[in-house]
Simulated assay, not measured.
Amino acid sequence: MAQPRRQTPFLVGLVLILAALPVGWFVFLRQPPPPPPRPAPPPVAVPAPTEKKPLELEFTEVSGTVEVQHPDGTWRPATVGAALRRNEKVRTQDGSYAMLIGGEAVEVRMDPGTEISVEALTESVSRILLGKGMATAVVRPGQRHTFEVKAANADAVATLEQSGAFTMSNNGQGTVAVGTREGEVTLLGQGKVVIVRAGQQAVIRPGQAPSEPATVPSSLLLKVDWPVERTRRERELLVRGQTVPGSRVEVDGVTVAPDAQGHFERKVVLREGRNTVDVRAVGVGAVGGVDGGVKRIEQRDKQDVVVDTTPPPLKTDPDIWNQANNDSR
């Protein structure tokens, strides 16, 4: 009986050891559970993209009759503060003037009798089409902007890729002139490229490549064929003359387009009595800087013409009789 009693503690201890094995494994050998997942960071608020306002040219000066062509084809008066957008046209009538500004980068100055349209207008490029007349393109200092002016009905493109200013004229018949006031302008025509630097100008005639750039002349060589007789009976006067090709000419305030050789003519209706006929030629060249002190190269010629349509007095019968007696002696 003693033998079983001795084995009892052993069996109890064995049972305790076997029972402790799972506990030890759980406590010492089991991999710890993974840490709880971190909470996701709150979403970062992304500001909604701000829509960029489409670029446009804004009228800052309007003098005389300046009109904008709207999508329905009608022409309506332009006003200061109004915008000229892509594919829209603007024209200045005789004796009128307009200035447009595009943001902080560019300016367009329109002479009388000028028509332009906007082909492209972005942060980096402005492109306009000069239908006729004379316009000045300005890229302000410190701006990285390309300004391109094409001439309608002509193979001519002038490009300014840095700050500066240049003027282009177009007679609408293929004669184009470019004068640079500041910077360097690339003039392309008939596959030929010339660089028109400050103080120079070049001319493109129909079917021809650009002329070699030359210094802006101090005179436009304006010559007018005035009538020899200052007193006339006719109320119409045909004014003919010649000037430097590419110039803009006004005869009594009406814009006239000289031809490729600079010839021009216009009929002027005169009134009874004394008339002063004024002829003015304006070139593409100018002297001075972008910000002021600019002097356009121009020349004027005036002539007084007297119209007297009063018929001569009829001779009375005594006058005729006395005249006959005098002739018979």
Rank of each mutant, 00 (worst) to 15 (best):
P206T: 12
N275F: 07
Q303D: 07
P213Q: 07
D278L: 12
E119N: 13
E58H: 04
A158G: 07
E51M: 13
V44W: 02
F264R: 08
R86E: 11
A45E: 10
V290C: 06
R230A: 14
V15K: 00
T92A: 06
K192W: 00
T74Q: 15
L14V: 10
W75V: 05
D304S: 12
E236R: 14
E119S: 10
A78P: 06
V251H: 12
A156I: 12
K89W: 11
V254L: 05
H263Y: 13
V244S: 09
V279M: 11
V254F: 13
N326E: 13
S328L: 15
A165D: 04
L221R: 12
R109A: 07
V149G: 02
T215C: 01
V139L: 01
L314I: 10
V185H: 08
T310W: 06
T8A: 14
G283T: 14
I17C: 13
A158P: 08
A198M: 01
V196Y: 06
F10C: 02
V216S: 11
V305Y: 08
E148N: 09
G246E: 09
V251M: 05
E58C: 02
L220R: 04
S63N: 09
V256N: 08
G13T: 11
L221H: 10
V106D: 01
E119Q: 15
G253C: 03
V68W: 08
R144Y: 00
P210V: 04
N322L: 14
L21F: 11
D278P: 00
F10T: 10
A82W: 09
V80F: 01
P41R: 09
L314K: 15
V138F: 01
H145I: 00
T175I: 14
G293Q: 08
G164K: 09
R232Q: 15
V62Y: 02
A198F: 04
D72K: 07
V282R: 11
V196H: 03
V23I: 13
I116N: 02
R266T: 03
G64T: 04
E123M: 01
T60P: 00
L270D: 06
R5V: 15
P71V: 12
G13V: 15
E104A: 08
K89A: 06
Q69F: 08
A154N: 09
E67T: 06
N325Q: 13
A19E: 01
L29S: 11
T60V: 14
G289V: 07
R6Q: 15
A2I: 12
S96W: 03
T122C: 00
V249G: 04
N322T: 15
L188D: 08
V66D: 01
G73A: 07
T255K: 12
E56S: 11
P54Q: 05
P34M: 09
L188W: 10
P71W: 02
P245V: 07
H263K: 08
E184N: 09
L29D: 09
T60Q: 08
W25L: 13
G207W: 04
S63Y: 02
Q31P: 14
G283P: 10
M1H: 09
D327W: 14
I320R: 12
P206K: 09
G199W: 05
L16N: 03
V224C: 07
